[in-house]
Design a protein around this nucleic acid. Structure first.
Length: 1176
RNA sequence: GCCCGGGUGGCGGAAUUGGUAGACGCAGCAGACUCAAAAUCUGCCGUCCGCAAGGAUGUGCUGGUUCGAUUCCAGUCCCGGGCACCA
């Protein structure tokens, strides 16, 4: 009886399906084990042989664990929302749900062919409303949560509002806006809109107006990890920054926990490093350097204020006003004098100011005002810092046209910083103080709402990176920097601001204005891509302004440069050229003198970023090692009140909206611009069916075109109309929690029952590719932590162990085509002309490229194979030259590297008449190269073809045999023969072609038992450590040994079947059934066909054989006998022989005597059970 | 540039704690069976010298530690992956 894998595999796949062999119960006494694959996106191309690698590994492990007595959950599903289906829909007009369904069918079939043990009754599809209902539900939970930094966990919004009512937000600075501050009583005065806007600054899923990665070609925004080198990860389209209203997940709040969680999970170091890198936590200090007034000493003269010329005018007016000096103060350039002026003015208010102040100071508006308060370059009459509102009272001179310009400029300047100015005339204040107050109050409220909502400015939004609450000193004049090296503060030689930094326009001196403007222009004209593509060049400009070093008072010039990013830290750095290479390069380029604070450690030619040098020129820190100086510096900085210890993260909050159709709709409705969550009973918000997938108006998604769907007459009974959110969720939404749904896939009440979640718990083994290191894995970890904090599940890391499978690369094949070029023309104009399809075999190509074959030689060869027609085929004259170029050919036309010429001829009409110049032995050989498997390289191998030709068991074992699971390796179809031969050999241990089953009940010999138990040990060890390739070789060795021993004994062969079941389940089941139905055997007796439908006894549920060490115990060992470390001979000795006797035996050995040549050895090294070495 | 991996026959790879380098398989060569083919089986298979016995050499390169190094240490080159002006 032959090994008929086709019939066997089909039969058992059918049987297992019928008997529900893979159905898993949540109610089981056995210990649980959860094995998960990263579920696939069902693409139109189907699976290639690279995809199942991880699935096979997890399948083997699942089956192994099941045989070892575990209740194993091993599910599969589809990540079926996503861009490609939509792109395909745009191109072909087919609805994504149709193509997705079709693709899933195909995947199903392909996966089933390979014989995986998935419990398909638990299948999930992220695009199925019954699934995404719960994705939407979890989104609502994120929306209804905030991160309590004190308790380090997510809590419900209701808890937050309760706290606000009690104590305002003094202890809970808003992560979305660190300048937001209000008291309990202020909170109680807030209207609904203000409250909701305030809460939005805390929610874990929040809406904000911010800079996003906009991809025009895809018509959507992309998350940071979906942008690679300034272009989209999918498709490589350009990505630009754009400001849009977007949903975000506040992942930055979880930065620390995501970092700490890595300590508890078993991921590869590379994977952990990638995540740590992405999170990018750094410790340092934020320091404020105060601006120094322009000083004549520097020979630049005082910075000339644009309105200095107005002095005459002013004095004129002053004479008429009641208070001399006041007018001038308005335009005074900011310096220390401002404070004096302010104090002076407070003492001398005008009458109108006095009246208004009395009304404002006892909170007549409900908002706190200050008077005569310096703000940047100006002094405001009245200001409410909470809502950024300035109130000015204007005297008569403000009516003059010149003054109006000045006022407008002033208002604009303040507007740029964020202040709104409200102006009243003296008369109005004096005549209608109540009306003025009401107007101020109203504007305050508006300002408050606006400020709360509009503060998410994407990349410029530094508050989202700082976990430590509000930063000091806003509005105080100075340059705030973030540094990880406060110990180097005495080495600061200049400051650098990002070009976009808000201070730039305020501090630039008149002299430097042009230079700065030119530089800003230059920066603006450069796209993101240019900046990235360009080799780092040193550019920058000097602002003309200075700060002083708080420790030694040194004046430090302020520069701007592209190399400082607006989006990280404070957007400004203190440059220490002796310790930072970029600062060094910048200093050299612009001739800025460098201060050395590390003595000999600095060689003057490059920066030295060491932390181990001793500090010089560093005031009170002199003599300290830098590493130790850091806390000293921070303490001092905090003591002086000029800064504080600060933790920064590189990671940004995750954008959560896409302007696409094929994704989860948001369960959100807008009323008067405010987003409201729908209730659970409104879920799922089903994705409406559309016919066109074009973008909506103003960067909105396709859903915005569905007016009927968008407009809700009355979202909540008894309330006004609302508009649906038209964005959809990104690809990672559904995949962030799918592992939970498998545990309880049909639950209608909740996304996973707590009992089911408690039973299955963490995924014990997760297998997938490294490409999800910072995307899916990080988001999935975040969701798990939130759901754990909120009490839905009892663990906060989803995946206990992660194994990354490597890529299977394609092996491309080339043929070498002759082309004729016109050679006497410009390079660009060379016209390639194909006279006929002529292909040279590999060796000619190589020799031609090495110059060992010339054009004429090629012609001679061609003449031979074409029967003397070469010169008819290729018209030759001196204007032409010939060349050979490699072209990709589909691997299916090759047997190894030999071309199947007939098959190739048939593949395309132009090849039918092709001429081949073969090697001397008549074979046409191709070139081969290892490349990524892809359609365009014609090197894709489909698992379907392989399974059809060799069977699923062979395919499974071969994929494992290729090499270590986590390594990338090329596919080589030829090599599969070896594994297939092995399985046939394995089969022949049990079944004879003629006699049928030949398994006997004879007693096994010690040698046979040794083979079995050695194999048990090997397979258990190797499977346990995911070394599947060596396990397969272990099976081969066992089969070879047993065949040599002519062993056909049931006592050996039955346990062996169970061992191989995880790897090759079909053949194992077939043979097992034969053995089971023939319980008493004599030689030659055996059943042939095994009937279908026998589910009650199955090798899938057999008991795993137990290793018995006693069969492996050896009494003697053949030792390698080496002399001076080189093996010269071997010597078999009993293992229990004492050392002295061993040494005596060794000395008697002929080979040893020969090498000793009569001399006594210096030493004999004897390692019991390992080796013997004689040292002469 | 920084951070991780990795360099072993013609090829995929093995050597789990420092102890016989090249398991297992592919490809190749020689042979058996066969009218023939397929299938199967046997032998050889890192390189160099040698008929052989045997010897020399050999895990990217240069050193070191050790009785003994693919394995540990230092330096260096190359390949792959990740991050990339992150202060």
């Amino acid at each position: 009886m032959e090994y008929d894998f086709r019939q066997i595999e089909k039969k058992w796949q059918r049987t297992w399906k019928q008997t529900g062999a893979y159905t898993v119960s949540n109610d089981n006494d056995k210990p649980k084990f959860y094995v998960l694959d990263m579920f696939p996106y069902p693409s139109g191309a189907g699976l290639h042989v690279g995809h199942p690698l991880g699935y096979i590994a997890s399948d083997i492990f699942s089956r192994y664990k099941r045989l070892k007595g575990f209740n194993v959950l091993h599910p599969m599903g589809f990540d079926s929302f996503g861009l490609p289906a939509e792109q395909y829909a745009i191109e072909t007009g087919q609805h994504p749900s149709d193509t997705t369904e079709k693709n899933i069918q195909r995947y199903h079939q392909q996966l089933d062919n390979i014989g995986f043990c998935y419990d398909w009754s638990r299948e999930v599809r992220t695009s199925d409303p019954s699934y995404y209902k719960w994705t939407q539900y979890i989104f609502l939970q994120l929306f209804d949560s905030w991160y309590n930094r004190i308790l380090q966990k997510a809590e419900r919004i209701a808890i937050l509002t309760a706290i606000f009512e009690k104590e305002g937000n003094v202890n809970l600075p808003a992560p979305g806006n660190k300048d937001l501050a209000f008291t309990a009583s202020e909170w109680t005065t807030y209207n609904e809109k203000t409250r909701l806007n305030t809460l939005m600054q805390y929610r874990l899923a929040y809406l904000a107006y911010g800079e996003v990665n906009w991809c025009e070609a895809l018509g959507t925004v992309l998350a940071n990890d979906e942008v690679v080198n300034g272009v989209s990860e999918r498709g490589g389209h350009p990505v630009v920054k754009k400001k849009l209203h977007q949903w975000y997940l506040r992942i930055t709040e979880y930065g620390d926990r995501l970092l700490q969680g890595l300590e508890q999970v078993d991921f590869s170091d590379a994977m952990k490093d990638m995540q740590r890198n992405w999170i990018g936590k750094s410790q340092g200090a934020e320091i404020n350097f105060t601006l120094t007034p322009p000083s004549p000493r520097r020979g630049e003269g005082p910075g000339k204020h644009p309105y200095e010329d107005e002095k005459t005018l002013i004095s004129e007016i002053e004479a008429k006003e009641k208070r001399p000096g006041q007018g001038y103060a308005d335009y005074k350039v900011f310096n220390e004098m401002s404070f004096e002026n302010a104090n002076e003015n407070r003492a001398n208010p005008t009458e109108a100011e006095h009246v208004l102040w009395n009304a404002l100071k006892n909170k007549g508006t409900g908002f706190k005002f200050r008077r005569q308060h310096p703000i940047e370059n100006y002094i405001a009459d009245f200001v409410c810092l909470n809502v950024w509102l300035i109130v000015e009272i204007d005297g008569a001179y403000h009516n003059r046209p010149e003054q109006k310009d000045i006022d407008r400029k002033r208002d604009e300047d303040l507007q740029k910083i964020g202040f709104k100015t409200l102006r009243f005339t003296n008369d109005r204040v004096l005549q209608n103080i109540d009306g003025v107050l009401e107007e101020i109050r109203k504007l305050c409220e508006d300002q408050r709402s606006n400020r709360i909502t509009n503060d998410h400015t994407g990349e410029n939004d530094d508050q989202r990176q700082s976990a430590d609450g509000p930063s000091p000193l806003r509005g105080e004049a100075g340059v705030r920097v973030y540094t990880t090296r406060p110990d180097t503060i005495f080495g600061v030689d200049f400051m650098v601001l990002a070009p976009e930094h808000e201070l730039v326009k305020q501090i630039t001196t008149a002299d430097q204005q042009k230079e700065i403007d030119d530089y800003l222009n230059y920066v603006q004209t450069r796209s993101e891509r240019e900046r990235l593509a360009e080799v780092k060049s040193i550019t920058g400009a000097f602002t003309g302004a200075y700060v002083s070093n708080p420790f030694d008072g040194r004046e430090i010039p302020i520069w701007i440069s592209e190399y400082v990013l607006a989006g990280y830290g404070t957007g400004a750095i203190m440059a220490v050229p002796c310790g930072d290479q970029r600062d060094y390069n910048f200093a050299k380029h612009f001739n800025i003198p460098i201060t050395n604070i590390i003595g000999d450690a600095y060689n003057g030619e490059e920066a030295n970023p060491t932390k181990d040098a001793t500090l010089h020129n560093s005031g009170f820190m002199n003599g300290l090692v830098m590493r130790d100086a850091m806390p000293v510096a921070i303490d001092k900085i905090e003591e002086l009140g000029i800064g504080k210890h600060q933790v920064n993260y590189r990671m940004r909050d995750a954008g959560f909206s896409r302007q696409r159709y094929w994704g989860e709709p948001f369960p959100i409705v807008y009323k008067e611009g405010i987003p409201y969550p729908l209730t659970e009973s409104d879920l799922p918000v089903e994705l409406p069916y559309v016919d066109s997938y074009g973008p909506g108006p103003e960067g909105e998604g396709p859903l915005a075109n569905l007016k009927d769907w968008v407009l809700l007459p009355s979202p909540v009974p008894g309330e006004g109309p609302g508009m649906r959110e038209t964005n959809t969720m990104p690809g990672y939404a559904g995949s962030s929690w799918y592992f939970l749904r498998y545990m309880d896939p049909h639950n209608q009440k909740t996304f996973v029952d707590r009992k089911a979640a408690d039973y299955w718990g963490q995924v014990d083994l997760y297998i997938g590719g490294t490409e999800h290191a910072v995307g899916h894995l990080l988001y999935s970890r975040l969701w798990t932590k939130v759901l754990c904090d909120l009490g839905y599940i009892g663990f906060d890391e989803p995946y206990k162990k992660l194994v990354n499978q490597g890529m299977i690369q394609g092996s491309s094949r080339f043929v070498y085509k002759l082309v004729v070029k016109k050679s006497n023309e410009d390079r660009d104009q060379i016209k390639q002309r194909v006279i006929s399809e002529i292909f040279y075999s590999l060796s000619y190509y190589l020799e031609f490229k090495q110059g060992r074959l010339k054009d004429d030689d090629l012609m001679v060869l061609l003449n031979q194979v074409s029967g003397g027609k070469a010169y008819n085929l290729i018209p030759r004259n001196e204007n032409f030259s010939i060349d050979i170029v490699p072209i990709h050919v589909d691997v299916k036309y090759f047997d190894g590297v030999e071309l199947n010429i007939e098959g190739f001829r048939k593949s395309k009409s132009e090849f039918t008449e092709a001429i081949f110049v073969p090697e001397k032995d008549g074979k046409y050989l191709s070139g081969a190269e290892v490349e990524k498997m892809s359609k365009s390289k014609y090197n894709v191998v489909s698992p379907d073809d392989i399974v059809e030709r060799y069977g699923a068991d062979t395919f499974r074992m071969y994929e494992m045999f290729l090499g270590p699971i986590d390594q990338s390796k090329p596919w080589d179809t030829k090599g599969i023969e070896g594994v297939h031969r092995f399985l046939r050999k394995f089969w022949r241990l049990y079944v004879d072609e003629v006699k049928g089953l030949i398994v006997t009940n004879e007693e096994p010999t010690p040698a046979e038992l040794k083979v079995l138990h050695r194999t048990i040990k090997k397979i258990e060890d190797d499977t346990g450590r995911f070394s599947f390739n060596t396990a397969v070789s272990g099976f081969m060795i066992a089969a070879n040994d047993l065949a040599d021993l002519k062993c056909h004994k049931r006592a050996i062969l039955e346990p062996l079947l169970i061992l191989i079941t995880p790897y090759a389940p079909h053949i194992a089941e077939e043979l097992y059934q034969m053995l089971v139905v023939s319980s008493s055997l004599s030689p030659g007796e055996g059943r042939g066909e095994v009937p279908e439908g026998r589910g009650e006894v199955s090798v899938l549920n057999a008991t795993y054989p137990t290793l018995e060490e006693k069969y492996l115990v050896e009494s003697s060992k053949e030792y390698p006998l080496s002399i001076n470390g080189k093996v010269r001979s071997s010597l078999t000795l009993p293992l229990d022989m004492p050392q002295q006797e061993v040494e005596a035996q060794v000395l008697e050995n002929d080979v040893v005597q020969k090498w000793l040549d009569g001399k006594a050895p210096k030493k004999i090294i004897y390692v019991k059970g390992k080796m013997i070495n004689v040292v002469t």
